[in-house]
Write a protein that binds this DNA or RNA. Sequence first.
DNA 1: GTTGGAATGTCAACAACACTGACGTATGCT
DNA 2: AGCATACGTCAGTGTTGTTGACATTCCAAC
Lengths: 166, 166
Amino acid sequence: MSDGAYRGENLLFLTDEQLRQGIEAMFFAYRGFTADPDRILGDMAYGRAHHRAIHFINRAPGTTVNNLLLILGVTKQSLNRVLRTLIADGLVESTVGKSDKRERHLHLTEEGKQLEQTLSDAQRARMRAAFRDAGPDAVAGFRTVLEAMMDPEMRRAYTRLKESGQ
Amino acid sequence: MSDGAYRGENLLFLTDEQLRQGIEAMFFAYRGFTADPDRILGDMAYGRAHHRAIHFINRAPGTTVNNLLLILGVTKQSLNRVLRTLIADGLVESTVGKSDKRERHLHLTEEGKQLEQTLSDAQRARMRAAFRDAGPDAVAGFRTVLEAMMDPEMRRAYTRLKESGQ
DNA sequence: GTTGGAATGTCAACAACACTGACGTATGCT
DNA sequence: AGCATACGTCAGTGTTGTTGACATTCCAAC
């Protein structure tokens, strides 16, 4: 068997058409992915940025602003605006660092945890339905591809979070 | 075997922790997904919204404004702002409908096609690398899960596009 | 110990892009 | 003629990103 034939036989999933379908699948799926939390947040004065902050503070309680910055990939000024409202509204607590007083450690208050739950539940419900419909093998492939698509730095952040969870 | 044990054995991929990892994977991967085109667009006066419009006009040449609206899921005012600049800059052509003169049919000009290629190439390169690293089975799973995650209406739009391509 | 640079976080102003609401025009359909 | 559809536009608002300027704190060199 020639190399050309071999590759033709096995790399059909790398054609431009297949890649384009992957791109469009990402686009449409991400819309679904954010739709449910967005609906809930729309009723309040919050947006997607607040959701992200709440999610990762919940995931890593006591994290510093700088740490959160690296994970979210936005400027500190942008994050600060979001944090300011969350703190003012009593959803997030910011405490001065013990060893390094420049740092602020972030925690969710009870009210913050409640909102996190509400948002998480909505988002997880869709993810759960999709996972169940697709089955465990598809889910494994899903995560493999997503991981391969991340920037190396983000992949490291993702892996760190994953391992800290379990 | 009890029902509880059965489910415990087989549905471990549906635990909250697994779902949360899926959610975070989606978040980090989407950042990578848009990173390369965003970099290119940042150098011009365009943004992600222009990219999306160009992508789908290229995908379905002659599509109407209304059609594009449904696919992109934004308001006409929002789309119009983007289209106006693209038409003014000579990347998109808008022609009055033949059978229904109320409609506007959208096409990319040569210059528009060129930008589309540049953006597509960047985004496809990352997708191709991810697909190759993950392998065909993982890619199949990836697409199955994404499809299951879409809103039904978007799934229909996605399927229509997919079938029109091949 | 003082000083100067680096790190951390805050405030202010601006741009991109989404939204709602209201209105105008041309066209199609009954 | 009357109503609905397709498209464009003006005005106003909100979220979220950006850059620039600045205060505080830490640390290390002097």
